[in-house]
Nucleic acid binder design. Structure first.
Lengths: 210, 210
DNA sequence: ATTCCGTGTGTACAATGTAAACAAACTTAG
DNA sequence: CTAAGTTTGTTTACATTGTACACACGGAAT
């Protein structure tokens, strides 16, 4: 029987738990965030509509777990993109582009991650941690970059990661929410993204009185 | 029903349509987006739960109308802030700060505006128009600013408004979604916002090989 | 074996979005 | 002014959702 008494209480959920998360992500991709329903997820997993409650206290907890998975995947994407680069500058751009690509590839999941579920530290510590880790990933790359071009302003040093994240996140959000270029051609959209990302590099230049 | 202080200076006639929009905004502010329900709005307005259907084809149409109102108010805020400035540079900053202030003052409404209702040109032309007008407001200020500091890159000329909007929008979103500084003090948060906004000005400087 | 507990099922209920039939008030033609 | 139609709101009804509760089944510890 291989009695594997788990020595660590790592929340290694049952198979169903992960299956539910997977089905939820599938629904998010195919039908969107509005169509994500607890009963629908249970149906997709082939269990009764009450089964999820054995693994999540309520719908919000499921959403939090899904969002957490999303943050982990986003972190992995950024890490993979960063590992393929040589310079700190390239790394920054690669991470930003990975972020953007993630948002465009999984708009439903992305909207959930930054949408209805607040990463409340006390209620969803794992989600809060995953969100923090994602940001830390960005911040590290930014710090590395600012270290290469010596930076005068110490306050900016702290604010730069925030600004970088805000820019990429804002661009992603506007993009997938159709707030510009809805009817434009895809290559046109890509071109604009490239231009904005180029501008994005300017915030790392020390200021000159203009 | 005692009329709670109307938070928005909307045309308040006997017109149920506008009353519904007003109540929806009030609910958005007090209870948040998740609590915004068609029946709840009708209840708040003191009518039967089917009355709204005489003015909106479905819930999404109500949300679109509310979002449209939000965009108009945001545009007005930005316009008011801009009118108090002298230089193009100040105007830009004032508009950005007005945007941020709006998001923090009405997080529920803001989330609706950039959330579930896509500004679909064919389904909600008025909403699409209001969203476009808001962006045009930003773009105009940016163009004015770039005109003052002569700009070399023509591509950047087109992308600059996008970048500016993305940065301010991203900062607003991260802020109200609690993705950083959740537990920090308010003045600390304000300081960080100021720093990021300062960085924000750098994207207008022509690039130098760094 | 018996007991217990983790996991899943069925039933039940309140809230929601929406359809359909109806009613009262206002508008307009005669 | 009356009669018809239109606008606006109401009541009733129903499917879907999130969730509480009681139960069933299978393995683990006693």
């Amino acid at each position: 029987m291989a009695t594997k008494h788990s020595p660590l209480p790592i929340a290694q959920g049952t198979d169903l738990r992960n299956r539910l998360i997977g089905e939820a992500i599938a629904i998010l991709e195919h039908e969107g965030l509005e169509a994500l329903t607890l009963r629908g997820v249970a149906r997709a997993a082939g269990v009764s509509h009450m089964a999820p409650y054995r693994h999540f206290t309520d719908k919000e907890a499921l959403l939090a777990a899904v969002a957490e998975t999303g943050f982990r995947e986003l972190s992995a994407d950024m890490g993979g993109a960063a590992s393929k680069t040589a310079t700190a500058k390239e790394r920054m751009r690669a991470i930003g582009m990975a972020y953007l690509r993630f948002a465009r590839r999984r708009p439903g999941l992305y909207r959930l991650m930054f949408g209805p579920v607040q990463p409340d530290e006390t209620r969803f510590p794992k989600l809060a941690e995953a969100s923090r880790a994602t940001f830390a990933h960005c911040a590290e790359a930014v710090a590395e970059r600012t270290a290469s071009t010596e930076q005068a302003n110490a306050g900016a040093q702290e604010a730069l990661p925030l600004a970088a994240w805000a820019l990429v996140h804002g661009l992603s959000s506007l993009l997938i929410d159709g707030h510009f270029g809805t009817q434009r051609s895809p290559e046109d959209e890509d071109r604009r993204i490239g231009e904005v990302m180029a501008l994005f590099g300017r915030i790392f230049q020390p200021h000159s009185a203009s």
